[in-house]
Amino acid sequence: MNEELYNELVAQFNTDGGEILMFTVDRVLYGVEIQYITEIIGIQPITIVPRVPSYIKGVINIRGKVVPVINVRNRFSIPEIPYDDRTCIIVVELGEIVVGLIVDRVREVITVKPSEISSTPDNNQNSSNQFIRSIIESNDEIKLLLDVRKLVME
C-alpha cells in the first residue's frame, strides 16, 4: 500500500471515526483499525528467516500462503515473553503486503467517534511512541492507535 492511499484512509478515519480492534502488549492497550485486519489466529509454528531484523520472527503458513510475522514486543523494544495459549497473531493486509502481528492478548472491537481521537505529542521519539498515530479516549480508557504502515514497513 503506498503512502498516499494510506494517508487518505487515515484522514478518513480521523474525520469519520471507525471500528478498531483492541489488544494489549505489556498490559498497555493498543488499537488497530479493523479495515486492515483480515483475521486473528492463535500462535503458529514459526519458521525462522535468518539475517533479517530481530522483530521479524519468521514466516508462518496460513492456508498455503507464506506470511511473515512481526513480534510487536520486539518492535516496541519491550522484553519478549514466552508465547502462551492466549498469544495471538493479528493478520493485517496493506496492499500487497500481508503481515502477522504477534500480540499478548486480543480484546474487543470498539467503535470510535471522531471526537474521541486526538493526535500524539510530536516530541516523543522513543521506540514505542513512534508507532503511535493517535490517542483515543473513550469509556474513561486510553487506547493508543497504531500506525500500522510505519510499524510494518519502516
Binding site: 519458521t47 528467516v49 535468518p50 539475517r51 533479517v52 531484523p53 521479524i56 514466516v59 503458513n61 498455503g64 507464506v66 506470511v67 511473515p68 500487497e96 503486503i97 500481508v98 503481515v99 510494518v152 514497513m153
Partner: peptide, 19 residues
C-alpha cells in the same frame, strides 16, 4: 513476501520458501 525485499534475502543465500 515483498516485506523482505529490502533485506537482500537473495544475497543472503535464500532463494524462496516452500511448504
Amino acid at each position: 513476501s515483498p516485506l523482505f525485499n529490502r533485506y537482500n534475502v537473495k544475497q543472503n543465500g535464500m532463494a524462496g520458501c516452500t511448504i
